[in-house]
């Protein structure tokens, strides 16, 4: 009987050990793969066109992109209070900032666009939010989403309207936005609200934002 018991314990330990080793090896493999397959955020044409629609340069999309009237900001090179987006983002949080862009019009006036994300019902909802130098939201667009019930939002501009004109110092709740817009898809709205809130926190943490730049 003692032998049978010790065999059962031995077998159980073997099962746990084998499963544990397989799990550890797989996690290590994925950690290595993740290092090499990480996506670097870059300004592509599609993103530039969206930025040109919410923070207009006054030029056509092609010219705005090619002549770098819209560009990604390297925080380490500017006079910003945050030197890296990774330093700002909370590890393991569902809401985070992905990138900062600048959109300059022909007279040199700058609008800042934050690319942020919040967790919706299915996955991340990625937003582009435009701020003026006074840190008020002047424009907004959804860059990407995979929400199952996105069609239930009859007019996304109503949702944008709830945020545009507000200051970065405002903290929004999805229940307030739901009440003012009539949108009922709670988790999707929560994802959008989180994306805006984290972008607001980021903009506040950046410090002063210059509103113009000399440009020929």
């Amino acid at each position: 009987m003692i032998n049978r018991k010790s065999n059962t314990v031995k077998n159980t330990l073997k099962c746990v050990l084998v499963l544990g080793i397989i799990a550890v090896v797989c996690v290590a493999l994925l950690a290595v793969a993740n290092k090499f397959l990480q996506v670097e955020i870059m300004l592509d044409r599609a993103t530039s066109d969206m930025i040109n629609s919410i923070a207009p340069t006054g030029l056509d999309d092609e010219k705005a992109f090619n002549e770098r009237y819209i560009e990604m900001v390297d925080l380490s090179k500017g006079e910003y209070a945050i030197k890296s987006i990774d330093d700002f983002n909370e590890k393991g949080s569902n809401k985070k900032v992905r990138a900062l862009y600048k959109s300059k019009n022909s007279s040199g006036k700058i609008t800042y666009v934050v690319e942020s994300e919040g967790k919706g019902y299915v996955d991340a909802i990625v937003l582009l939010i435009a701020y003026d130098s006074q840190k008020n939201i002047t424009g907004m667009a959804v860059k990407s989403q995979m929400e199952s019930f996105w069609d239930h939002i009859s007019d996304i501009n109503t949702v944008y309207g709830a945020f545009i004109g507000t200051s970065a110092s405002a903290t929004h709740t999805s229940s307030q936005i739901a009440a003012s817009t009539g949108v009922t898809v709670k988790k999707t709205l929560a994802g959008i609200t989180d994306g805006v809130n984290v972008a607001n926190e980021f903009v506040l943490a950046l410090g002063d934002l210059p509103d113009a730049e000399g440009r020929a």
Binding site: N11, C15, V18, L19, I22, L29, L30
Partner: peptide, 16 residues
């Protein structure tokens, strides 16, 4: 892989 944990093991490998 012991018989008792073969399915969880397969799932971990497949998921990886």
């Amino acid at each position: 892989i012991p018989d008792k944990v073969r399915l969880p093991s397969y799932i971990i490998i497949i998921a990886t």
